[in-house]
Design a protein around this nucleic acid. Sequence first.
DNA 1: GTTGAAACCTCAGATCC
DNA 2: GGATCTGAGGTTTCAAC
Lengths: 155, 155
Amino acid sequence: MPFDSIDRRILELLQDDGRMTNVDLAERVGLTAPPCLRRVRALEETGAIRGYHAEIDAATLGYPITVFAMVSLRSQAEHDLAAFEGHVGTIPEVRECHMLNGEIDFILKIVASDLKSFQDILMTHLTPAPNVASVKTSLTIRTAKALPGIPIRHT
Amino acid sequence: MPFDSIDRRILELLQDDGRMTNVDLAERVGLTAPPCLRRVRALEETGAIRGYHAEIDAATLGYPITVFAMVSLRSQAEHDLAAFEGHVGTIPEVRECHMLNGEIDFILKIVASDLKSFQDILMTHLTPAPNVASVKTSLTIRTAKALPGIPIRHT
DNA sequence: GTTGAAACCTCAGATCC
DNA sequence: GGATCTGAGGTTTCAAC
């Protein structure tokens, strides 16, 4: 995977502003537009760029509550892990699900419109799910940092 | 702030594909291009849309490791909380920092290029930070779900 | 006050060097 | 990687509902 310094700069700029026009991008990285566009397309096709997304203010759109849920299962057999993942995949309010090592099997990021609806998701969809041993939740008081993706090394 | 069904559909579509052209967007929401563009601009200016970002494949770009760190502080005075937030704000590998209720004060999402560099971040920048009582970390085995932002209600 | 139509002008994408 | 060209899209203006 040969990313030269121009590729990395392109990725950095697009991670920061995904709607930057190709001519702007080209100028910033010191190319003309056509080769710059070719690089962007190549980055998209190889999967280095997985997509582009608008960042939407959750509170403004009716989701002021973000909760992290630490879930432990009774069985860690692959079949049971996958079943749990499939289940949370169907819950729209569960935005992220990461399998972890250690005592906690999964950490989930959940958004909700209010505490009652969070409780509803928890009691109706999460705690009673098959194989769930324990669910510990913590409300987000505030988010101090939320950068997209990854740092881009310039060296 | 009144978002009608067209605004919500615009937000949903741009959250899914932030580079969709305005004419495509307009067609999908049943408008012509100019009023659609005005709505998008209004959503940007009111802060409903906070920005646009390319989603970059972390592993491909040299960050195969994602770790969640649960941090507890000795003092929860606002000054000390803010000092910790300011400190993690300067660590590029810390991508998210959320203040939580309960025993854990903060949850951090950290990316790293390998376990040694993760250990380095942990030992050099996190554990010895002022006021840190305990740091418990869990490696991400796999990410089963990672949707951007929030669900958009159509009703 | 918001939509839609038309004009303009910039950009994306293709071709060739 | 760069130059040129064409068609498509972004953006503004203005009229109409």
